[in-house]
Amino acid sequence: MKRLSEVEEGKYKIVEILKPGKTKKMFNLGILIGDEIEVKKSCPGPVIIKKGNTSVAIGYGIAKDIIVEKVE
């Protein structure tokens, strides 16, 4: 398990979001804990993830609190 800010491009599953405020922000965009996502662009700079047809850019400040797990 790694932080979203540390991972390379590839497929992941969101395991946990560390701060409730940040969970809400992600949820506002339709991304929930347990979702499978694809990382399209990694740090430095905002991480770009894709879930279904939705692409979201996430700045380091939030990405570092999202815990993900690699999906094969």
Binding site: K25, M26, L29, P46, I48, N53, T54, S55, V56, A57, I58, G59, Y60, G61, I62, A63
Partner: peptide, 9 residues
């Protein structure tokens, strides 16, 4: 505060 923004196609 950190960025979070949707990218429209």
């Amino acid at each position: 505060s950190p960025l979070i923004i949707e990218l429209p196609p």
